[in-house]
Amino acid sequence: MAADYAIPAASLELSEEIKKSRFITLLAHTPTVEEAKAWICEVKRQHPTARHHCWAFVAGAPQDSQAYGFSDDGEPSGTAGKPMLAQLMGSGIGEIAAVVVRYYGGVLLGTGGLVKAYGGGVGAALKQLETRVKRQQRPSLICCDYTDMGAVEALIAAHQGQLLTADYGQQVSLQIAWDTVIWTQVAQELTDRTHGRVSLRPLDG
């Protein structure tokens, strides 16, 4: 069963100067890989004269390796994107992207200095980032007669079910997403409230 996890509640920007180079670290909520890449492109447009736009993202659940990505964007291999990604992975936060914009100041930092600047910038920003918990949800199907709609609607309201689709034909067919941790409880309550006439069917197998 998938676990709940933290996601960014707001974007964050942090700036520091290291040996005459300015490093601007930006964090944002990016639920998908496509959104992460689009946001990275937007940051590049906002900083067209910067020397480097190094980035990393975990654009999904924290443990979803298929949602990982990173780039050194011209810095020596392994000195920017990987340290940034390591910070994101270590935070346990999901759906997050980071860009570190570097305005070069003419002084070389060396491999260790770059790792510290990029990884450290993301680490410092993460400490200031506001987060909220993303609850895992399970989609379900409810089919019922109109006479049972009162009980169904009361159950949805009581447990903050999220209505996905509704089809009002001869019977009512509703797709509802519930917090995964209470799904079994909701299913039992629905059966009890309707005296077995209505049941909750999972849509995710």
Rank of each mutant, 00 (worst) to 15 (best):
H53S: 15
G150M: 00
W178P: 02
F57K: 08
E130T: 14
T194M: 09
G105E: 06
C54V: 13
R132F: 00
L190P: 02
Q87E: 15
D192Y: 01
W183F: 05
G120E: 10
Q175D: 08
E42G: 15
R197G: 09
T131K: 02
V58Q: 13
A98L: 08
P8G: 10
D72R: 10
A177H: 05
A154F: 02
A6F: 03
V181A: 10
T131H: 02
H195F: 03
P139T: 11
G196Y: 05
V122Q: 13
T32G: 11
S91V: 11
C41Q: 15
C54Y: 08
P83S: 13
T49F: 04
D64L: 09
Q46D: 14
A50G: 11
G110L: 10
D148E: 13
G106I: 02
K127V: 11
I24D: 04
L12H: 14
G81M: 07
S173Y: 00
K44N: 14
L126S: 13
A67W: 03
G121M: 08
E35Q: 14
D148Y: 01
Q128R: 05
V152W: 03
G150S: 03
E35N: 07
P83L: 09
T165K: 06
I18A: 01
K20F: 02
K82F: 10
I93C: 07
K37H: 06
A38C: 09
G150A: 04
L174Y: 05
Q175L: 01
M1V: 10
K20G: 02
L203E: 03
T184P: 00
I176Q: 01
H52E: 12
I40M: 11
A166H: 02
E17G: 06
Y168E: 02
H195Y: 03
I142R: 00
H195G: 07
Q175R: 04
R22H: 06
K82H: 12
D204K: 00
L27Q: 09
L174W: 06
L200D: 04
I93T: 10
A80I: 07
S21R: 01
P139V: 09
V186L: 03
A124R: 13
I24M: 04
A6K: 10
L174H: 07
G113H: 06
V133W: 00
K37C: 08
A154Q: 11
Q46L: 10
P139I: 07
E75S: 15
V172C: 08
R138G: 06
